[in-house]
Amino acid sequence: MFSKSSGRADLEAGLFFTGFGVLTAALSLQYPLGTIAMMGPGMFPFMLGTILAILGLVMLLSGLSGMGEESRSLPLVPTLLISLSILAFAVLLVRVGLAAAIVAQVFIALWASEHFSWKRAVALSLGLLAFCYVVFVYFLGISVPLLAV
């Protein structure tokens, strides 16, 4: 039970939170800090950033000493493909239209899973296109062009 883990999760979290805290604190210095009684817009974020950086350092230490938690293994390819599919949707929606956006998103996202096949991707795209058109455009009246010219 008490086997020593490498504490990778705490190490990474420590780095992230320290970095984010320092960044926040540094960025808030460009706004007036004010006094404790009359706080400027920079004071509260500066305080939060500082505390966060300290907590990050504590995590970093516990990670370095090997007492932290083991990190989960993140599937890299699906992470990138799913994010990419969301970006592709946004880019294509305004430039080409809903039809292209949905097809692109379904194909890229399905590519990330082990169950990709052309037939499935086409079927899902068509079904979703019909569904979105009926629900969003027809019933809810969202002004999104099927094909933007």
Binding site: I82, S85, I86, L87, F89, A90, V91, L93, V94, L98, A101, I102, Q105, V106, A109, L110, S113, H115, R120, L124, L128, C132, F136, L140, I142, S143, V144
Partner: peptide
């Protein structure tokens, strides 16, 4: 594999519909 593309697309259209803007999707 049927479920997750549906979630993705419905979410993205929903995000667009908030302000008719793609910024929330990014």
């Amino acid at each position: 594999w049927v479920l997750f593309p549906i979630i993705l697309v419905v979410c993205c259209v929903g995000l667009f519909s908030i302000n008719n803007n793609v910024v929330p999707i990014y």
